[in-house]
């Protein structure tokens, strides 16, 4: 048995241990994969995939979540969340994700109780260890399990298995919430989130796949993946127009390109919360 096969078997075992699950289902690579495997392993009556609907989630993610659930027969529910009304979240501190996830997991745990589902699970995976993730503290407080992480599955393995399962998300770029585009300390407002979403939709329409529009007030700093940077120069007027059209006065192209967690650069290590850590 290969290591990868062993992890697959371990994932099945973990899901059987759970018995029935509510999957925190964002429409991203990991949660889509987990919901699909859980449905295969446990059956439709023991699984519910739930998407938290709020202004911090791009609408294309919500569309993906809905479409994949319908196509693959995954029971699906959308639940509104209201993290923006929490002033601790809206102030955008370094541990903003903790307040968002506290709201999300509280809502989902309530749904799980009401439906008689034994365990709430998320799509954290083995490659998430080491990232700044204050949300993991909220997950721990609500007893959330992470079957992909527990099985030791990496992102590459999840993508490969997703492809085998013909999930359209297998090569989808990572897509954290829109608030992650705002530097810490800049208040999270529906207007700013809409600006980011609109600017990113414009770049996506130009054919860019892996990028971020970072919100610095009147200025947008665009990070594009290294392999796509060469496309910016010939399209510079279109790129600038798309981003300015979202309400930014000036459009800057980051010369280091897209990198995960760029807004965490410069934070003191003591302010970072990593997967596996506890408060």
């Amino acid at each position: 048995m290969t290591a990868s096969q062993g992890k697959r078997e371990r994932l099945h075992e973990i899901l059987h241990e759970c018995g029935s699950v509510l999957v925190g289902y964002s429409g991203g690579v990991d949660s889509v994969f987990l919901a699909r495997v859980a449905t295969d392993v446990l059956g439709r009556h023991r699984v519910l995939a739930v998407t938290g609907k709020s202004a911090s989630v791009p609408s294309w993610m919500e569309d993906t979540a809905r479409e994949v659930a319908a196509r693959f027969g995954i029971p699906w529910l959308e639940v509104p969340t209201d993290e923006l009304s929490d002033p601790r979240y809206a102030a955008n501190p370094v541990d903003r994700c903790y307040f968002c996830k506290t709201e999300l997991w509280a809502r989902l745990a309530e749904v799980a109780r009401g439906r008689g589902l034994r365990v709430v699970v998320d799509g954290s995976n083995a490659d998430d260890v080491g990232d700044h993730r204050p949300g993991v503290v909220a997950a721990a407080e609500h007893g959330i399990r992470s079957p992909l992480l527990e099985a030791g599955l990496t992102k590459d393995e999840i993508r490969a298995w997703s492809r085998e399962l013909e999930l359209p998300t297998w090569d989808q770029p990572a897509a954290p919430c829109l608030a992650s585009r705002l530097p810490y300390g800049l208040a999270v407002t529906p207007e700013r989130l809409r600006q980011v979403e609109r600017a990113e939709a414009g770049l996506r329409a130009l054919g860019f796949r892996d990028f971020r529009v970072r919100h610095h007030g009147a200025v947008a700093r665009v990070e594009v993946a290294a392999e796509e940077l060469g496309r910016v120069a010939p399209l510079r007027a279109e790129v600038a127009g798309a981003v300015r059209g979202a309400g930014f006065a000036r459009v800057l192209l980051d010369l280091q390109g897209y990198r995960r967690g760029a807004l965490n650069e410069g934070l003191a290590p003591s302010r970072l919360v990593q997967l596996g850590a506890r408060r």
């Binding site: 700093r221 665009v222 910016v232 510079r236 790129v239 600038a240 000036r250 459009v251 800057l252 192209l253 980051d254 010369l255 280091q256 760029a262 650069e265 410069g266």
Partner: peptide
């Protein structure tokens, strides 16, 4: 160039598209 400019006290170095 980016590292040299960042050492002057900037967190990011970017090109103005316009």
């Amino acid at each position: 160039l980016v590292d040299e400019v960042k050492r002057l006290g900037f967190r990011y170095v970017a090109l103005d598209l316009e």
